[in-house]
Simulated scan of single mutants.
Amino acid sequence: MMLADIVGWMGTSLIVFAYFYANVLNKPLGILYNCMNILGSLLLAWSLTVNINWAAFSLQIVWIIISLFGIWRVLRSRKDAKEPA
């Protein structure tokens, strides 16, 4: 098995575990969830550069952007909760 395959499987595992974490364990979609998605997508995207699959690569880029938006929302809601009304 090539290094790219191992990295790709690690990325896939992170994304699947994040999905499991959010849906089966009924955990809120916070920083940990989004960071696991970003890291998983980055690893998977890197592995796809060895044998490029543009559709799968594009999906990882979109997944990263959505996860960054999720982190931004979590941080913004924490800031808003700290500010007096």
Rank of each mutant, 00 (worst) to 15 (best):
F57H: 07
Q60D: 11
L59P: 06
A55M: 14
T49V: 10
I64W: 09
M1C: 05
A45L: 06
Y21M: 13
V16T: 08
W54E: 09
W54G: 09
L42D: 09
D5S: 15
L29Y: 07
L43A: 10
F17I: 12
Y33A: 03
F20H: 06
A56K: 04
A22M: 08
V24Y: 09
M10E: 03
L42H: 14
L25E: 04
T49I: 10
Q60K: 15
N37Q: 12
V16L: 10
L48C: 05
L75V: 00
F20R: 10
I61P: 03
Y33I: 02
L59Y: 07
N23Q: 13
N26W: 04
L14K: 04
W72G: 06
L48K: 01
L42E: 05
G11S: 15
V74C: 07
C35H: 02
L68R: 08
C35G: 09
M10F: 12
S13W: 00
I15M: 03
A56Y: 02
S58W: 03
K27G: 00
S41K: 09
L39K: 05
L39G: 02
A56N: 04
V24L: 14
L42M: 15
P28Q: 07
M1Q: 00
T12M: 06
Q60R: 14
R73E: 12
A56F: 02
T12N: 01
V16G: 01
Q60N: 14
I65D: 04
S58Q: 04
I15K: 01
N53P: 01
I31D: 05
Y19W: 14
C35M: 14
V16S: 00
T49E: 00
F69H: 12
Y19H: 09
L32K: 12
K27W: 01
I66Y: 06
